[in-house]
Amino acid sequence: MAHWIEASPRGVYVRPADAWIDPSVPVDRALVTHGHADHARGGHSQVWATPETLAIMALRYGTEVGTSVAYGETISLGGVDATWVPAGHVLGSAQILLEHAGERIVVTGDYKRRADPTCAPFEPIPCDIFITEATFGLPVFRHPPIEQEIDKLLGALHASPDRCVLVGAYALGKAQRVIAEVRARGHHDPIYIHGAMERMCDLYRDFGIDLGELHSATAASADQLRGKIVVSPPSALNDRWSRRLPDPITAMASGWMRVRQRARQKNVELPLVISDHADWDELTATIREVAPSETWVTHGREEGLVHWCETHQMKARALALVGYEDEDEG
């Protein structure tokens, strides 16, 4: 089946189109699912992606341009029809549906099934080959409802009015989602953000996502930050940058926070299990829903998901693609 597509450690190669999906090295033609650096690398000659993803890439790599493809729009490359369909992962994230020789193949990129006010929801597409991620492909990973986690955050904030809650959140996607969900829970105080995420938040706003009142954390005094939420990239949590904050309660928003030792290793006091990836139940439910005749697993805990497919009489294989997992992203 599907002799026109192959997996190599560098990415998924679509032979008739001579194009790669999310390649990890510079190539001639790249079809990009979403803007995270491990999927959207710089240096390709030609790029096809959603307008949001292209904007994110331009922000990161400077003047890079590509061909913008809206959700639902189909392009044809060497006899392969490619359609970008929402993946629900971050702003502009897409699955890529490839149709050729009567076969349908879906490459999910990263995805989740939970509602997210900052991006379009995942749309399941029935297909022959389903090429999925498996970041949380073990049954220990079950993300709780986000409302519960946001309430934990707000609870800690209100319990310690002299401190601030410093939330480590990936600068693209997670940070904006946490802010939007905090707003949705009725918290409208200014939120202070690390310099490294200012431009990304501006970009989200340019695409119409309301994040409420944001200020630069770097410019604020310790007194101004008391009783406030501060959002920074995970790398800044235990960094010199955070030392000037007023006795911060260190929180981290990530699916990895479900595992105690992971949280402790990162010195996190308030673990928030908030993920932009599908959890175990979502991964398995999605495979059932799209009912492919074959599932290929790109990255993550591949062996767990492949084993599940096999025990449910579904064909599956692990592709073991490299370079797709960013510890902090989760």
């Binding site: 073990l138 049954p139 220990v140 084993h307």
Partner: peptide, 15 residues
């Protein structure tokens, strides 16, 4: 729970 998934999970989580 499927014993294989349990063993993989155990190996991942540790405890």
């Amino acid at each position: 729970v499927d014993p294989v998934l349990f063993a993989m999970s155990r190996d991942y989580v540790g405890d």
